[in-house]
């Protein structure tokens, strides 16, 4: 049914995925206390993970609300049709990302070092 090359291929892909995952964990070593929101590839704003607040993000594609609570950020509500972003969970480390495709938003966690303006 399956050939030897099939099995080699599958094992290779799974091993590659594991190695790639370890590589992405390197993103988590920064001091991560700021959540960064990017719209269309350009930075929209940075918000501290240390203060609990709800942040309203309004774009020309729609609005959504980012909620920061207990050092984690999650999408509370969103205008997008598929709502993938609401189910992506809470992020708090550099190796985690939330993406909302219809709203062209990327939400990730960065460190404090290269920030000149932080919105509280």
């Amino acid at each position: 049914m399956t050939t030897k090359y099939d099995r080699i291929l599958i094992i290779f892909l799974l091993v590659f995925a594991i190695i790639l995952y370890c590589f992405t964990l390197c993103f988590a070593f920064d001091v991560s206390d700021t959540v960064r929101v990017s719209l269309d590839g350009k930075e929209y704003g940075r918000y501290s993970l240390l203060t609990d607040e709800d942040i309203k993000i309004s774009t020309e594609y729609g609005n959504c609300t980012l909620s920061v609570k207990n050092g984690e950020a999650e999408v509370l509500s969103s205008d997008c049709p598929d709502k993938y972003c609401e189910n992506m969970g809470r992020i708090s480390k550099g190796s985690q990302v939330i993406v909302c495709v219809p709203l062209h938003l990327v939400i990730d966690v960065v460190g404090n070092s290269s920030v000149d303006k932080v919105a509280y």
């Binding site: 599958i10 590659f16 790639l20 990017s38 590839g41 990730d108």
Partner: peptide, 18 residues
């Protein structure tokens, strides 16, 4: 999105793809 961070999804997607 001009974002390299999105690559963090790739390991999961590879496993799901397999």
């Amino acid at each position: 999105f001009m974002s390299f961070r999105i690559i963090v999804y790739l390991p999961v997607l590879i496993v799901l793809g397999v």
